[in-house]
Design a protein around this nucleic acid. Structure first.
Length: 343
DNA sequence: ACGTGCCTTGTGAAAATTAA
DNA sequence: TTAATTTTCACAAGGCACGT
């Protein structure tokens, strides 16, 4: 995949775990965090925050970063945090609070965070630090000599840009051209000084690297070898997370499945129609509804919503039970309790 | 109390398309 | 060729589930 998007909300498991359990045999919730130090994995941004291989990370560095908000709000703090990191070699956010004191900083999403933690994040963004592991989901920071080396000997910029667009097209394609444009612009956060060139790289890819066809008048694109007609017809039921590449592009979802899936975490509770963290549910490749999963005690509670007109055939319920049992094992639970939303 | 992530919606600007 | 209209793009703003 090259990139797996991270999200910490456990409903029922972190997004990265859900994405991986759909693709890795016998994957269990928490495996990525547990095995991360032994894997060819880094945390970085393309097109969003998540986990990348080092080959992919080389496309993103060296990164020329404009002044971040925490640097503006707390002049000099990042130098102090850098000094603590270099002195210890490895720090948990609470170590830095202990060393430098607690100070508030506003974060991008409108909330408050510890200023020192924002500064660690800024060092990571700048390629001056890496995530060495997570401690119960909390990032532990260390030095990043492999990124220092890239400052001296970077990949050629045109190669980096071309590979970024190809990665997006491979991971999220086949997909509508405007969606690839959107993914490319989002990736500008991972390559802030190459934003304009990224647009050019997309133009070049559309003329050269990628293939495409119109579907119902919508221009779809993909990397050579990924022609949608070549994929085997999917079978069974699959419950996937909101950030899975299979459903990430809401435009494609709506075009292919005929209804709008929405991530409703930002929707005020009374206005939600599916649920805070409803997971798209597919049967034989068609999105037929959603699932809200939670673990209480040793039981996975599955609340299933179905689109109008979807019937509970024997084929469907057997396949659903099989999928829920996969989730039960993944979540290390003993049993499953299923209920259906009234529609 | 804190750490952790981000998608959707609204708005105005720009670009593309169509009409004059 | 220019004006009008439609479509696309870019940006800003905002909240919460869950575990420690």
């Amino acid at each position: 995949m090259g990139f797996v998007q991270a999200d910490p909300i456990r409903a029922p498991a972190r997004a990265q775990d859900l994405t991986l359990m759909a693709r890795v045999k016998d994957y269990r919730a928490g495996d990525l965090e547990r095995l991360y130090p032994t894997l060819d994995a880094e945390e970085d941004i393309i097109p969003n925050y998540g986990f990348v291989t080092r080959d992919v990370q080389r496309l993103l560095h060296p990164r020329e970063v404009p002044e971040t908000r925490v640097e503006r709000e707390h002049p000099g703090l990042i130098a102090d945090v850098r000094a603590v990191l270099h002195e210890r070699g490895e720090v948990h956010p609470r170590d830095v609070i202990a060393a430098l004191g607690a100070r508030r900083a506003s974060n991008y999403w409108g909330g408050n965070s510890q200023a020192t933690t924002r500064a660690l994040d800024a060092l990571h963004y700048r390629g001056e630090a890496r995530i060495v592991r997570r401690d119960g989901g909390v990032r532990v920071y260390g030095l990043a000599p492999h990124l220092d080396a890239l400052r001296v000997d970077p990949l050629p910029t045109p190669d980096r840009l071309r590979a970024v667009v190809r990665l997006l097209a491979r991971l999220y394609g086949p997909l509508p051209e405007p969606s690839l444009r959107y993914l490319t612009s989002l990736s500008g956060y991972g390559l802030p000084h190459l934003r304009a060139d990224l647009r050019g790289a997309l133009r070049d890819a559309l003329k050269g690297d990628l293939e495409g066809e119109r579907v119902d008048g919508v221009p779809y694109v993909w990397v050579p070898g990924d022609h949608p007609g070549d994929a085997p017809a999917p079978r069974g039921v699959r419950i996937v997370n909101p950030f899975d590449p299979l459903v990430w592009d809401r435009r494609r979802f709506e075009h292919l499945h005929g209804w709008a899936y929405r991530f409703e975490a930002y929707t005020p509770a009374p206005k939600r129609t599916m649920g805070y963290y409803a997971l798209p549910l597919l049967h034989a490749g068609r999105a037929v509804g959603w699932a809200n999963l939670s673990v209480r005690g040793d039981t996975v509670h599955a609340q299933i919503g179905l689109r109008p007109g979807v019937r509970l055939t024997a084929t469907f319920t057997v396949a659903l039970d099989r999928e829920l049992d996969r989730h039960r094992a993944f979540l290390n639970a003993a049993q499953v309790a299923v209920s259906f939303d009234q529609t």
